[in-house]
Nucleic acid binder design. Structure first.
Lengths: 339, 339
DNA sequence: TTGAAAGCGCTAACAC
DNA sequence: GTGTTAGCGCTTTCAA
């Protein structure tokens, strides 16, 4: 690793001269500047980031804590965060908590020793369920900025980014009602998560507010360890008149299409279907699954932008708010109007 | 952020005394040690990582460069890397190159200024195709240790981790041959990648070496931008006697099952199918796709372990080698013996 | 048993 | 226009 000192020695000038020359200081003569820059170029000098961080008391690095990288939503959010970070000159240290509170606590504690300037966090399922939030409050106390996204905790004071899950579910439910669907079911593997709950409530609310008579909510709640295909099949057998399904997570929609087709249903003629997922997953079923796009990448980008903003205005003590990113309903084949 | 200096002032001792006390130096009296530790505990002192890094000339951070986080293989590998890193006391800075050479160059250049102690890299498609490897050679010159995995370049001298893709494809092809299959097809969206090529060659080789007469390779090569469902359907129509299929990537296997079922095929009776993918994807089709598990997590873990090993023995100039992680053939429903 | 000082690589206020 | 110095937080050698 080549340092300012190395350059200074070779050029027979002082370290500070080199430093100033490299930053085009007008204290330094044109000639010296070009000599310095020439050598720096030749030797491929790069300022040592660690020394800079120590000096400036900022690392230009952000800690990203996510529960599960195999979940496409988080993977895409991470991609958005990463991209925006690069643009703004930041690096990302990622920690995957695997939905465990302990790992989340460890990661945050590990990184809040000056390793990062701030955090972007989607908390683990365990954290949501247990409401253990001391590790997050510690960050506030230490005045380390943090943004939460997707999995938000009301009791933690910070800026947050989500999509309007309630509205999304509400809207598609109403769409089904307007299409004259009478038995609209709701399938979820994530009822324990707040996003899962919001989607469920949006659905429920639309059903209950409807003026259509005899409209009742129908649920299939699945646990992570269950056999999805099996439970969905049984659910369809037990409820043969279902004519629309909303899948609250990013995978059961696809599985439901496959199961229903396999049972001989004609989709979308017999059943309209929509999931909360994305383009790639949509292509994994025949017919292709319609979906509510959660704009994960946009969520990530916005989370990062908000955080960098906070870092730049650390002195100002702004009030916290929650940014709602618009969702997008993408009609593929499972909601083709059968009229 | 609370520092040694803070502690020293409060305790009316010198900074070095505090430092030594915290590391249980026997130069310091028991009493001082306990006083120091008590206060440090109360104030929740954590040594500043940046200062430590500068002093020790190591960051305990590793740069991980991967092409695409939405690819489950890389996501799982990252998870393995991350986990093992935490165990060994390292952090991970992730860069996603989105399969672009430029981003790969930028990421590496950005991080090779002392930000990380070493790299774990799966190069981008563009890098593979263009064979532009200066940015990787720079790392060797700078003596920054690096491990490559999955996407390996022969011209880059470093330790590498892969699965034996050739053998895996060879083995399943032979399995199909032994089952009496006569028209064994190979579908791939990744023929441009070396893993893709290795799988193809393993398949070809098994076909060619076979003593069964009239056995010929049959290919469907798909481009990323193509409509997968459509091309696969046409392929099946044009080759109605296919009785076995190997899907070289982690997604076309599932799509092929769905397309074939949709066309009225009975699987696995008419066609045996296997993909290079994982458990979760396997569950997205009916019948469930059999697959070759690439042990992505294990690959990641091993890559990290190798790298840390190198970091610990930076002086020793070991020869480089390629570690082959065993694959696992997981028989689900699409290879159920139809006999 | 404790403290002073140097130094990791860098910037910046302040001399000269 | 250039150099000296101090200091970011830490460890470690050497001195007291």
């Amino acid at each position: 690793m080549i340092t300012l000192k190395n350059l200074a020695e070779r050029l027979n000038v002082s370290i500070s001269t080199v430093s100033k020359a490299l930053s085009d200081s007008d204290e330094i003569s044109k000639e010296t500047i070009s000599r310095v820059k020439k050598l720096a170029g030749e030797l491929n000098y790069q300022p040592n980031r660690v020394a800079l961080s120590l000096k400036q008391n900022e690392t230009k690095t952000i800690g990203v804590i996510i529960p599960n990288i195999l979940n496409r939503f988080f993977a895409m959010a991470l991609y958005g965060i990463q991209n925006e970070a690069t643009k703004l000159g930041y690096s990302i240290i990622t920690c995957i908590t695997n939905e465990q509170l302990v790992k989340e606590q460890e990661s945050i504690s590990l990184l809040s020793n000056g390793s990062v300037d701030g955090f972007i966090i989607a908390v683990s399922e365990e954290t949501l369920m247990s409401s253990r939030i001391e590790h997050l409050q510690t960050l506030s106390e230490k005045r380390i900025p943090m943004i939460m996204f997707d999995r938000n905790l009301n009791d933690v004071e910070c800026n947050k980014v989500i999509i309007n899950d309630f509205k999304a579910a509400h809207e598609v439910t109403n769409m089904f009602i307007n299409r004259g669907k009478k038995q609209i079911a709701f399938i979820s593997t994530i009822n324990d998560l707040n996003v899962g709950a919001l989607r469920r409530i949006g659905y429920e609310n639309a059903i209950k507010m409807s003026v259509v008579p005899d409209l009742n909510p129908m649920y299939l709640f699945i646990k992570k360890e269950d056999d999805y295909q099996d439970l969905i099949k049984k659910f369809l057998i037990n409820n043969p008149n279902i004519d629309a399904i909303i899948a609250a997570d990013n995978i059961t929609g696809t599985i439901t299409v496959n199961v229903a087709i396999n049972m001989g249903y004609d989709i979308p003629k017999n059943i309209n279907l929509i999931g909360f997922t994305d383009e790639v997953v949509s292509n994994l079923s025949i017919p292709k699954l319609s979906y509510i796009d959660q704009n994960a990448e946009t969520i990530g980008e916005n989370a990062l932008r908000l955080l960098v903003n906070e870092l730049k205005n650390k002195d100002l003590d702004n009030a916290h708010s929650t940014l709602k990113i618009p969702f997008k309903i993408v009609h593929k084949e499972t909601t083709r109007s059968s009229i």
